[in-house]
Amino acid sequence: MQRKLSLTQKDALIGFGLILPSLLIILGISLQPILSTLFLSVFESSRGINVERIFVGLGNYTALLSEQLFWVTIGRTLYFTFVSVGLELILGLAIAQLIHSHPPGWKFLRTSLIIPWAVPTIVNGTMWRWIYNADYGALNGLLLQLGIIDKYIPWLTKPDVAMNLVILADIWHSVPFIALILQAALATLPADLEEAAAVDGANALQRFLLIRLPLLRPAILVALVIRTVEAFRAFDLIYVITNGGPAFGTVTISYLTYLETFSFGNVGRGSALSFLISIFTLIMAFIYIRVLYRPEEN
């Protein structure tokens, strides 16, 4: 029976077979919660037992889209996402390159990279909140002893400063992810291509830009997509370090969703926000893929 199938058909069959278990699990777990969130998003309702639900159609969505707070928050979230992911990519690529060139102690460095990820986020956040503290924080202590500042600075009292400090904490936590992914990708790259280029007289930078970077593109794409999705939904670190303050200066879109859903009990609005977040991330993922993904190279 199978012999009669063409190679492509056979591929398709195997393909579906390989994907099926994963798909079953993902859908089995997520489908119902996603559908119920979608359902809730078209009602105006507060949380509670036997509360009255008022059908509002797309009302929650249009209301959110017409609010200034929503767009300001989206703007802030985009800033957080692009600054942190951008810097993480640059630093991550540099660190991956460095490790790949096998400097003295590279194995130690590679293992060390795990640590920022291994420290639980809640501890991570508390640690940074403490480091940034105006009166007894390590940042002020260090900068003062190095002579960079002459007086302790209340870091977290200015919205833009607080935002950038949260980004710094996020970078510390997430650079290792990109660095390790790219380093592992570098390890799988064939060495002969570059050697050939070196023989042809290409210098290190040319070899990096023309050979290594294009080969790394799939890995960069994946790292970027995953990190962007994560960063756009950033919540935990912000909750612990600033609680969204000062003056909502670090409230991201996920934080707003948390406030609406859990703190305020505006279940409908919270669910609508969730879907708007998904749509935004989906759009960003598509843009990345259009720009970076070229499957027809195969």
Partner: peptide, 16 residues
């Protein structure tokens, strides 16, 4: 008032 009060909770008050 301590200017960092704008970012403080009770526990920071105690620490200071």
């Amino acid at each position: 008032s301590n200017p960092a009060s704008i970012s403080y909770v009770e526990e920071d008050v105690r620490n200071v």
